[in-house]
Design a protein around this nucleic acid. Sequence first.
DNA 1: CTGAAAGCGCTAACAC
DNA 2: GTGTTAGCGCTTTCAG
Lengths: 328, 328
Amino acid sequence: MADIARLAGVSTSTVSRALSHSPLVNQETRDRILDLARSLNYTINIGAQNLRLQQNRTVAVVIPIEQATRQQLSDPFFLSMLGSLADALSAQGFDILVSRVDADEVDAAAAPFDGGRAIGVILIGQGRHHDQLNKMAARGVPFVVWGAQLPQQLYTTVGGDNVTGGRLATERLLAQGRRRIAFFGDTSLPEVEQRYRGYVEALAAHGLSPDPQLHVASSFLPESGGQAVAELARRGVAYDALFASSDLLAMKSIHAMREQGKDIPADVAVVGYDDIELSSYFHPPLTTVAQPRDVAARALVDALLVLVDGRSAPSVQLPTELIVRASA
Amino acid sequence: MADIARLAGVSTSTVSRALSHSPLVNQETRDRILDLARSLNYTINIGAQNLRLQQNRTVAVVIPIEQATRQQLSDPFFLSMLGSLADALSAQGFDILVSRVDADEVDAAAAPFDGGRAIGVILIGQGRHHDQLNKMAARGVPFVVWGAQLPQQLYTTVGGDNVTGGRLATERLLAQGRRRIAFFGDTSLPEVEQRYRGYVEALAAHGLSPDPQLHVASSFLPESGGQAVAELARRGVAYDALFASSDLLAMKSIHAMREQGKDIPADVAVVGYDDIELSSYFHPPLTTVAQPRDVAARALVDALLVLVDGRSAPSVQLPTELIVRASA
DNA sequence: CTGAAAGCGCTAACAC
DNA sequence: GTGTTAGCGCTTTCAG
């Protein structure tokens, strides 16, 4: 900026004003300065500007990962949520700082805020440490999380209606005459737990009670699907349907079942969760519960901005929809 | 920091030194200050620190998208590359600023650097505007791109060996006795063009010349696979194999062909490209060309750091590998 | 319409 | 071992 000032024969104040299109500065001077800036590929140093203005147009997007299992950022659902968030945030002129934290230390997600790097944090996924998030909220970190709404929650969540989602999925399978419905999913995660609740509700509505033998607490590991299918085989339990807590898990499980010679959906009908893009191209095309990613992303951003504004933002539960395809 | 200084009864200099674990400051004072900082959830304001230190630990990761088609950030390959980059950059202590630019204005990728937000830029995908990238390089923007190496290139690329990849894929199909091999891909993209070259080379080695009727310049649109398959049908061309320039495209195409009653691989053998995670779970499991994402991510980061250091970084071409599965 | 000066939060000589 | 001071790049009163 000093360079430009010198070249234009004005002070840095004038350059600053010109660059911010202040009407105070002479039209001609302004044009000269803007031209100069353009030709030098000059851009305002945002760090310094932020410092001076005490403002910030950066939002941190944080993804909790299972450190223990060294899981890669790989579930297409999370990734596409990131894409939708990128859209929503860019549209509002925010920069996006992406980071990952250990799912067992989600409170580390506050770092970009504490360090003044971001005005707030969006967490894609809630992990199992509700208490850590509550503490973060208590000490005033503005953040919202994509996840389930829990009792005594001090923070704002945006999430799908997991109970209904689980119920819809299970009802679909029941409607097809299936009675031995396996459930794959780690119920220590609140979202999965709620989907499981929907599953139990649907069973109950048909006078059935869940068979614990049919529940495999498969985690989000690379090999999870295969392992879960193998586990059922080891237990020697019969099943004619599967409700998997994510599409990725459903696809891996279908692959494993196919290797056991099972036909999908004839032998085992399958419903997944998330409606990732590839679900419709999978074979058989996957029946699944759709979560509205774009709406969710906008809701997350809106809620965060409300929080940053010092107001309180209510949690949002978005409707889920059963997408019926060939797998069930 | 001033608050802590006051509470600790010292000057901000001492606080600054204590926080950076300087041995200059008295052990006892230091512990008192660190405790205080912890209890206040204080973290250094990195913006201010960067300003003062004239340093920066942020790298911009930029993804070119086809604005015209409003394409979402959806190809799992790009997303998982982002994941690998996040790993590689975090490991080196860098923050990641993610943004998307219009593929027709890739030079906008320089913005985070120009604005002092990032020390350099990693572009995931090269787009079709080689010239814009060359100009960016010429004016000293430190950046590396995941993409193809081109003649007269002033910038650094890291990419797979696309020609070999294309050759391997095509050879596999030829080895299975296929002779009418369709190629789906937008050859205006350098990487795809090179894969096409490998395809042509492999054909030539078998005394075949490429039939232009078999080439569909399908873009990376959501519906691309279906459209490409429909286009072949419209042209009335017979084919017994398909080489798709991405796994996503391959999967969509397989889905479309299956709807036409074709059996994969009996009627049409298919090879994809990228080896995304779901390829092995697809039905049939996809034969594809693997690109080493983790190695690539590390190479991209390493090259960028060399550039930031003011040295010049050679382009890197990583080996590709044919992963044989059931689809071909 | 423009410039001088102060200060955002931080660090590093330099002094003591 | 600690404090004083200046300054990173920017904006904005306040004076002209």
